[in-house]
Each structure stands twice: as C-alpha cells, then as structure tokens.
Nucleic acid binder design. Structure first.
Length: 431
RNA sequence: UCCCGAGUAACUCAGUCGGUAGAGUAGGUGGCUGUUAACCACCCUGUCGCUGGUUCGAGUCCAGCCUCGGGAGCCA
C-alpha cells in the first residue's frame, strides 16, 4: 500500500506520507492555502505555503473545488491550530478529478434536499458519524449472538404465507406460483429452526407496506430476531435485557467520537444497566390514565402514550402481557387469564418507545389452530408451522429488535430516516 | 386515509397595504503568510409549484390541483 489513512496519522508524526481522498473544504489566506481533506476515516488539514512548495503545486490547489478527489503527500506535524490536532505540510498534490458544482455546501440545507442527495450526503459529517455507529451496532448484535452460541438462520425474504396478520405487505407475482409477499418477519421460520439448533437468530431487511407517515417508520428496515427453545416469557426478557446492555456498552466503548460529533448526551445510555423496569400492560394503562391519556384497556399504545410512559423511567422498561386482541395469533395465552397473552415490548427511554417486541409462543397444537381460525387465516398456509407443534413441541420464546429504531435512540436522532444509508419511506424510493 | 404547514435564484430564506424581484451562501474575478462555516471588494444567478379567476396591475387576494414536510391512524 502506497498511502495511509487519516485515522492512523498519529503513528506517522514527522514522516512523509501520502493520503488519498476528497476535498472537504478549503480556505485561503493568499499565500497560504488550507485544504481540509477527508478519506472516509477522518479529516485532516493540509497546508500549502507559497515559497515552501513548488509554484506549480501551489497553483494547482487554486483549481480544487469542494469534493474533488485528490492525492496529497506531505509531512505529518502536530499543530494545535489544526482541527484534529495534526496537519500535513504538503510537498505534492495531484488532482484525480475536479468536482463541478457539488450541491451540498457547508451551509444549512433542508431535509428534502439532503435526502434527494443522499448518495452525496453520506459524505457529510453527521450521516457519516451515524452510519459508523450503525456499523458498530450491527457488529455488536452479531457478536452478542455468536458469543452466546445462537446459530444464524437466514430466513426467506419472499414468502407465501404471511407472518403476522395486522400489517400490510408488499406483494409481487412469483413466477407461476401465485402471489409472494416481502417478509415482515422471519420468526415463523426461526420457530422451525429451534428444534434443530436450540437458540437461533436471523438478521435481515423486513418490509411493511403501511402508509405510515411518522418519524418512527420506514417501509424497509432491518430487524434482528432471536428465538430460544425452552425459554419462557421471563427468560426471554432476561435475555433481551442482557442483549441490550451488551450492545449499548459496546457503542459507548467504540463510538465516543461519533456520539460527540452528534452531540449526543450519553448519560441516559450510561444508565442502561440491570434491572430494567418491568410493568404489566394493566399497570401501564393505569399510569397513562393518571397522566391524562385517553387510552382504553384493550388497545395498543399510541406514539404519544409511549412517549409519556418512557419519560416516567430513566432506564428501558418492559411492558408485558398485552391484551390478546391487540397481539398476533402465535402468542401464548396467559395460563390463568383469557384476555391477555404472554408477551413483552421493550420501550427505550427519553420518549423513544418500542425497540423490541417479544413473546412466548403458543406451543399447543389445538389452541393454535383455534387462534388461526379466530383470525380467519388460511389453515393450509400454516400447515408446516402447525407441524412444529406435533413433533416434539416445547415451550419457546423470541423477540425482534428494530435496528433503525435502536440506532435512532442510541444516537439521539429526531427522525428514523437518518439511521439507514438509503431510507425507504412512504414517499421516497430515490436515490 | 384524515388534520395542520410549506412551495420565490443551485441552496437557506426575506418580500410590509396588491404597484412590476432581494439578502446570505454556492459559483466567477481580484486582494490577503495561520485560516477554523475564514475574511474584504466587485460580478453573475428567477417558469415566484401548476391551472384558472378577481383586478388597470397578483409572489401577494380567491378557487382547484400537484409536490413535499410534520402529526394522527397503522406498525417495529
């Protein structure tokens, strides 16, 4: 390799190095030019002084425009005046390509403009920082499951039978086999895999065709789902707690710089420790009513309800045992109550709300058949799913964590669209 | 689908009572030997979202439509 990266520049103090990258910004003081060069790993200020560098090289820098690609060679020097602490005294400068009229200037832009130029906006500091945190978040998730001996099971994205019953699906013609749907969950397939592997997880994109128009919704988002044989609903919550603490600690350890760039107050993240609060749906409704919410027992929380609720707690809170009629057919009925199921949602603090939905699954053949019928679902589509209850059925539980919602909370973002490289929302399919 | 709000220069916006379009940024030219979103001077930039209406005259008032943003619902 004949060049080095800006993040390693501290190892080369006093040495002559070559960097390859893009011009982030430039300033000139006439006979001194300052070039801010970025290479994906950082930003460094390069200095060209007339008289100390060949005239043709000094003049070359006049041609540079924002985001032109270039190669620079110079001596690394520590300097407190430089952003980043180090700067490069240039001895050589080669233009790779001159960028013409780069649309994103160092001045404020509106979100529509920025997301119309998302392919370029990725280069800016804020999205760059967020997506670096995303990278670590995903690594932490995979790392946690690997360390805890969960087996990765990739579940299909094209499915015939539907997963849950409530949400709207993207539909496509599947050759000669009729309609296929883009997956909204891999859970049912994971339930098949636990009897083979015990503890499993899947991680992939999921799709919802709902015309949701809020700061918490994407039509395409990434979800990690885990499924565990012989775990009951409480074991499931213990696991989620441990899992979330692991990934938050990982981010706190690895992403100090990025969180600082995002001006994220990390004190709420530092409070993510055992035990999380656990309240029943019944208690949550009581608390909300006392706080003035119009919620009625039996309905799901609205966005506002979630915000009120999470602001009552300084750590994540589980709300467990929701009304049966507000939850999916596959959840296990409560052993002594007919109106609730064994499940739990995990709500992130600071008003962010639901990031995990989980439940113990219905492992009883007859009762599951009954629930499928009650929901008017086609029994034959679920034949394989029902088979799992015929051949060595066991108590089991699982959960799904929304990656973008989690990242939105960890980074303290105000809109989920910033948490994914190329967001797909109700009105956005470009770029 | 419903309720708000916004569409004016490449970008961010201002535009008073209806009187014929203006700032900053970007771009261009010149100046400046330590700039930090550099600064200073000058120059350039318009289908005022679209269609129609009222008027001597519409960016401005009225109607309809389009697009986008925020929220609700739905959902992770």
């Amino acid at each position: 390799m004949d060049f080095c990266y800006i993040e390693d520049i501290g190892k080369h103090e006093g040495e002559k190095v070559t960097l390859k990258g893009w011009l982030y910004n430039k300033r000139s003081k006439g006979k001194i030019h300052f070039l801010l060069v970025r290479d994906g790993t950082g930003i460094i200020q390069c200095v060209l002084t007339k008289g100390e560098v060949a005239d043709n090289i000094f003049n070359t820098s006049d041609e540079l425009t924002q985001e032109s690609s270039l190669e620079v060679t110079g001596t690394v020097r520590q300097d407190q005046r430089a952003p980043g602490g180090y700067e490069l005294n240039l001895s050589d400068l080669k233009i790779i390509q001159i960028a013409q009229d780069y649309p994103i200037t160092p001045k404020p832009h509106g979100t529509t403009f920025l997301f119309d130029h998302r392919h370029l906006y990725l280069r800016s500091r804020r999205p760059h920082a967020i997506l670096k945190v995303r990278n670590e978040l995903i690594w932490a998730i995979r790392n946690y499951f690997y360390k805890n001996k969960f087996v990765l099971i990739d579940t299909p994205l094209l499915t015939g039978s539907v997963g849950e019953t409530t949400s709207t699906l993207f539909e496509t013609q599947y050759l000669n086999e009729g309609k296929a749907y883009l997956a909204q969950t891999g859970q049912l397939y994971l339930e098949a895999a636990i009897a083979a592997f015990g503890k499993v997880y899947c991680f992939g994109p999921t799709f919802r065709a709902e015309k949701s128009k809020t700061r918490r919704h994407l039509t395409e988002f990434w979800m990690v789902e885990a499924e565990e044989a012989f775990y009951d609903n409480d074991d499931n919550m213990d696991l989620q707690e441990d899992f979330l603490i692991f990934i938050v600690n990982w981010i706190l350890e690895k992403c100090q710089e990025e969180l600082k760039e995002l001006e994220r107050d990390i004190s709420p993240l530092e409070k993510v420790k055992k035990p999380f609060y656990r309240i029943s749906y019944d208690e949550a409704v009581e608390k909300l009513k006392k706080a003035g919410s119009k919620i009625e027992w039996g309905t799901d929380f609205g966005g506002e309800d979630e915000t009120i609720l999470t602001k009552m707690f300084d750590r994540p809170v589980f709300v467990y045992n929701y009304p049966k009629k507000a939850r999916a057919f596959y959840m296990k009925p409560h052993p002594t109550r007919d109106d609730v199921v064994l499940c739990a949602d995990l709500l992130a603090p600071e008003g962010y709300g639901e990031i995990i939905g989980g439940s113990q699954r219905n492992d009883d053949y007859d009762s599951l058949v009954q629930r499928i019928k009650e929901e008017n679902l086609p029994l034959d589509a679920y034949k394989w799913f029902l088979d799992l209850r015929k051949y060595g059925s066991v108590p089991h539980s699982g959960f799904g964590l929304g990656v973008e919602r989690t990242l939105t909370w960890i980074c303290g973002l105000s809109h989920i669209r910033e948490s994914i490289p190329f967001p797909r929302t109700i009105y956005r399919l470009y770029p």
